[in-house]
Design a protein around this nucleic acid. Structure first.
Lengths: 195, 195
DNA sequence: TCATAAAGTTAGCGTCTCTAACATATGTTA
DNA sequence: TAACATATGTTAGAGACGCTAACTTTATGA
């Protein structure tokens, strides 16, 4: 790494990181490519050697976040006994933790920004996370595999945790949610849904 | 109304309607004030006599949508017997119907666009809708009023329906949800949550 | 009636996305 | 190693957008 190289080294990764930071700081809607360039120390035309357009830059950033998200959910399962409903709760807690810790990325992914993109990699990532949940639901229900009933229950659980994540973002509603203990809520719902 | 009046008549309402249409057509993120002006047939400076800035224009449009939303939820309750859990289902169905019929407005409200606005009218509108649900939950549970337990159950139900609405937006996931009958899902969840 | 306020207009600044044309580094191959 | 091709940067600029300032036209009411 020379002190002032013409070439950056790994501008693509640097831009993704700058994008991630800015999306958290300013919010997904007021993110600008120019500002990411300033932060990465390159001209405003540089990104277009790595990304087709602004949207593709955001998608790449979301994908990177989803990878981290999935890894964390898997890590949260370690040490929790197989077949225990606690594993469902652990996944839910991690899901919500990500939504609260990285609200910008979360909204970028699910808030409708990348709606009309239909990037297959985005959907694939979501399916992978959903599959982790379904596997646990199957074990808890004692089902042999991913049956219709497993998908149904998983879908219900996911809807709940997903909605809860969104609601907890909103300040005024976070107050409402703040009345309750998160883990207790999740355990309650898991128990009701898996019964 | 003269054929070519210098003054519009009710530009504010016309801009809100144009905004509503464009948000549905192009999505909340690619909405532009300029285009709304073109559609309303005025210059691009005209809106600033009625709205402080672009955000206030979007907030006004969201507020108008929330009013319609609340009216529809109340209308959905008519004819359904008091104290019946069907009333909970009816509210949920209407909530989801609005989310699916007006996805642009729904995402504008809940997707994080108006996040840092903290307009008290926005929060008030949300509270009013939530209160409708809570009243029904109280009756179903046979509770005397809005007790802690009522708020807790209502919060769970709302989280679920809210998350379901978001998930049903996503094409790839709508397929997943499409496996199931919506009303049956809602009845199932209501029953589990109110038990 | 006529001053004033309300509600339009045009002109223009600064910012943003993205493209075109050019410059510089890297790597492959004769 | 020389030379060419490719990858990755740059500057310049077009066109859209948000918003403001200054001006014009209509409506209001003392």
């Amino acid at each position: 790494m020379s002190k002032k190289a013409y070439h950056h080294g790994d501008l693509r990764a640097a831009l993704i990181e700058a994008t991630r930071q800015l999306v958290e700081e300013k919010g997904p809607d007021s993110f600008s490519v120019s500002e990411a360039c300033r932060r990465a120390g390159v001209s405003t035309a540089a990104p277009y050697k790595h990304f087709k357009d602004k949207t593709e830059m955001l998608v790449a950033t979301v994908l990177e976040g989803m990878d981290r998200h999935r890894d964390k959910m898997l890590a949260a399962l370690e040490g929790v006994p197989e077949g225990s409903p606690d594993r469902i709760t652990a996944i839910g807690m991690e899901y919500i933790a990500f939504a609260l810790n990285e609200p910008g990325i979360f909204r970028l992914k699910f808030g409708g920004f990348t709606d009309r993109i239909a990037d297959p990699r985005l959907e694939e990532g979501g399916q992978q996370s959903f599959a982790i949940l379904l596997a646990e639901v199957a074990k808890c229900l004692g089902e042999p595999g991913i049956t219709d009933e497993v998908r149904r229950r998983g879908f219900l659980l996911w809807s709940f945790v997903h909605g809860l994540s969104f609601i907890l973002h909103d300040k005024g509603l976070a107050d409402k949610g703040g009345e309750f203990d998160l883990r207790t809520l999740l355990e309650d719902v898991s128990e009701r849904m898996l019964r």
